[in-house]
Structure formats: C-alpha cells, structure tokens
Design a protein around this nucleic acid. Sequence first.
DNA 1: GATAATACAAAACGAATGTTCAGTATAAAT
DNA 2: ATTTATACTGAACATTCGTTTTGTATTATC
Lengths: 199, 199
Amino acid sequence: MNKKKLQSEQTKRKVADAAKALFSQKGYKATSIEEIVEATGSSKGNIYYHFKSKEGLFLYLIDEWDLEWERNWKERESLYKTTRDKLFGIAEQIILDDLNHPLTKAADEFFNNEEKGSDIEERIDEMVKRHVEFNRELLQKGIDEGEFSPKNAEQLAVILEGLFVGMSRMSRKTKTENALQLYHSAIDVFLNGIIARSS
Amino acid sequence: MNKKKLQSEQTKRKVADAAKALFSQKGYKATSIEEIVEATGSSKGNIYYHFKSKEGLFLYLIDEWDLEWERNWKERESLYKTTRDKLFGIAEQIILDDLNHPLTKAADEFFNNEEKGSDIEERIDEMVKRHVEFNRELLQKGIDEGEFSPKNAEQLAVILEGLFVGMSRMSRKTKTENALQLYHSAIDVFLNGIIARSS
DNA sequence: GATAATACAAAACGAATGTTCAGTATAAAT
DNA sequence: ATTTATACTGAACATTCGTTTTGTATTATC
C-alpha cells in the first residue's frame, strides 16, 4: 500500500492546484468542473473520486489557505509586542495575503451565494467563528492591558472582521497601490476608534 | 392612449413587487423567472416585454430602492445640525433601511457575482460612485468645519461605504437586535476614529 | 372600419453544468 | 494465482433557467 497511495495524493494535489488557479482567475461560479478536467488531464469522475463536490473542493482550498495564514502569523507574532502593534501586524499580513492571494475574490463570491449544501454551511460558519474568535482574543487582551477602552470585545471582533470583508469588496475595483493605502487607513481609523485615551 | 398604458404600468408594478418579494426571500440567483411568473400570473414573455432581462429587472428594483432612500434622507437631514450628527443620522437610517429592507442580501449577492453584462456593470459602478460621493461630501464638510481631523476624505468615504457593506455581511447570521447594536458600534468606532481632538 | 401598435400568452430553445454510474486497469492482500 | 480494493475513465444523466419566438387579442390611430 504505497505506490498507489502516493500516486493518489499527487493527483489530488494536481487537481487542487489547478482548481486554485482557475478559481482565482475566473471566480467560483465561472469555473466549471470541465475546465478543471481540461487543466489537469484527469477525468470528471476522478475529480469526484477525490472530492465530494465542487463546493467541497473549493472549501478544501480555503482550508489550506487558512492554515497557511495561521502558520505565517505564528511565525511573525513575536515580532510585535503590544496588542496594538499586533493588530497592525495582523492587518498588514491580511492586506498582503488578501492582495497577493487571488483566491480572495472567489471566496467572497462563494460566501455570498445563497445556494450551499447544509453541511457546507456549517463549515463556513465554523470558519467565520474561528476568525472572530481570533480577533476577539486579541482585542480582549488589549482591553485587559488597558490599551483599548473597555468595550464589548466580541462585538468589536465582529466589526473588525466585517471591516476586512468590506475593504476587500471596496478594493476590488481600485489599483493595488490604492488598495494597500485603503486597508491601512481603515485599520488606522479602527484602532484610533478603540484606543484608550485619558480624555 | 390611456387604458392600455395604465394597464401596462399596473402590470409592470405587479411584476416588480412580486420580484422584490421573491428576491428578498430567496436571493437573486435562487429566484427564477418561472417563480415570478407563478407569483404574478403574468407570462414569461410578458415579463421580458417589460424588462430587458433578469439583471435589468433586479437593477430596476435597486434603483427604486436607492431613490426611496435619498427621498427619506432629504426629509430627515434638517433634523441634524453638525456633520457628526448627520453621520449618525445617516448611519441609523442605513441601519433601519438595511435591516428592514430585505433586498439587501440579494443585492449583496448580486454585486458579488462575476457574471454580469457589461452594461449592467456600468450601472453598478455608477451607483457605488454615487454612494461614495455622498459619503465624501459629508466627510469633507466635517473636515472643513473642524469636526474631523483632516484626512483624505475620498478614502474615508470608501472606508465608510465598505464598513456598511461589511456590517451587512456580518449581521447576516445574527438576530435583528444584535445587528442593530453591531451597526451602531461600528459607526461609533468609525466616528471616534476620525473625530478631531485636541490631544 | 381598416391598419398599426401594444400587451400579453405559451411553448420551445438551447446551452451550460454538476453529478452519477457502469466499466476498466492497476495495485495490494490473501 | 486469485481475489479485493483502489484509482481512474468517459459517457450519459438530469435539470435548471434565461431568453427568444411565434401567435393572438385588445386598444389606439387615421
């Protein structure tokens, strides 16, 4: 049980890579299984052997992306000391990640479409929850340490997540340089809005 | 040229109303022309006689919605004196409008879909530009009058627009009461972030 | 009253696309 | 060596849906 399993994993990877490229270029809906077939040389049946469905294939890619993001962050986290700096650091990583990661638009499209299987919906909910929880912990830490004024951390976490979502959408039409500035300003406003002051 | 034109307008309205209800409940993509046919009693051909396409029908509804929003705002604008208060007022109207207006989700879905006719895309771009310009004028006024710190008004306008978009998405899963709080907090943070202070 | 325009109906088109399934070959297991 | 499980093929399936087209009845125009 070796040669076959290896070959299998290689094929799965090849499909995932091709799908990622296509989803990135054309978006989720506009990318057909047929195109993935043409890009990989694999057959339709084979793709459905490795992945449960088109949605499943896409979520597989998003999961990988998420994991990669967390890995990158953990490497960089120690570079920042205060929670405030960490937030800026996260912001910047998200900015770079979002702008460099062409899957963003497809993900945005995917999450906004109403027709998802109920099992898929659950996975999405969990993913969003993970993000918000990630934000919440950081914000709570900032509040506890007196950096931010004591507000509802859970709510601020949701707002932060929403801010990124909104910025992603707004920067769709703008050039990359402007998008970078836009994101940065948004974080600036947000931080400025929750920062603790003596006034 | 009277009885016929009247009847025609009534039919168009009936179709528009039914479509609005359906798009609101089920989203853009999930609502089929066939369902609009069933809901109105009109035929497919008739719908296509009154509206150029499904996209055209949807944009017609969005346009109406936008016009109604502006009308409402102009009625209320005089109630607020400072730009800061106006922003809060706008925020609240958007909140109420968005939460009460079930078309929001469908619009969000529609704007995120990649497959639109090029003429449709133009109309969307214009609409977004109008919104941003609306925001920009207000923010610029606030800056000129010293209420807000002098930042790039254009960029802040885009950020504000994005914030609403993001909040709309984030509040999709939450209950109405929580959504109201969320929106309000977000505006709070934003205003707090751009407010002018003596520090 | 004849002609033209308008409002509407009903059916067919047509094309894209996700998914399944019967069948085959290659490998592992016994 | 035979059986079994796994990886894969390719075609058919199954629908869904937006759009077009052809035909008709009613109303306006002259």
